[in-house]
């Protein structure tokens, strides 16, 4: 599939699945929130969250078998200590900010939430700045 077509199809599937979760369950498909509540024993109504996370993991298995190039598990060559630091920051930051690319970026922007539009603008801007510094200031490219 050409990159732009796969981007379009993939995006429609992501938005469609998130929309169906809202229509059927009345839930926002925010992965960080679902994962955060799935690992919290006190969560009310935990089963669907565990099931959704299991579905994401299963998708990884399916992609590995059918289209292995889509799931490189190498982490783009980022050094391991940096990857650990990034993981901790992503986990902490998405819980503190109540969402990530899916909950704020897709669902929140899609329903026109001012909070999510601010959050999405913030994490996009910071991520772009970080890549600029890492690649063109520190990296010296």
């Amino acid at each position: 599939m050409p990159p732009l077509l796969s981007a379009l199809v993939g995006g429609l599937i992501i938005g469609g699945a998130a929309a169906l979760l809202y229509l059927l369950h009345g839930r926002i498909a925010g992965v960080s929130g679902i994962l955060g509540s799935a690992v919290a024993p006190e969560t009310v109504d935990r089963e669907w969250r565990v099931a959704f996370v299991a579905g994401l993991l299963l998708a990884g298995v399916a992609l590995r078998l059918l289209a292995p190039s889509t799931v490189p598990v190498g982490g783009a060559g980022t050094p391991l200590p940096l990857l650990v630091l990034a993981g901790v920051i992503v986990g902490f930051g998405t819980r503190m900010g109540n969402g990530c690319t899916s909950g704020h970026g897709v669902c929140g922007v899609g329903r026109g939430s001012a909070r999510s539009i601010w959050a999405t603008g913030t994490f996009m801007a910071v991520a772009i700045a970080v890549v600029f510094v890492m690649r063109h200031v520190i990296g010296g490219a």
């Binding site: 994401l56 490189p72 920051i89 992503v90 998405t94 970080v130």
Partner: peptide, 25 residues
């Protein structure tokens, strides 16, 4: 929280959904 998330996302290029899919892979 969003700024922290952006920092981590910019360092690794991985956000929570893809992290779980790649983990499953």
């Amino acid at each position: 929280g969003a700024a922290l998330f952006g920092l981590g996302w910019g360092l690794a290029g991985i956000c929570p959904g893809p992290a779980l899919v790649d983990l499953g892979a």
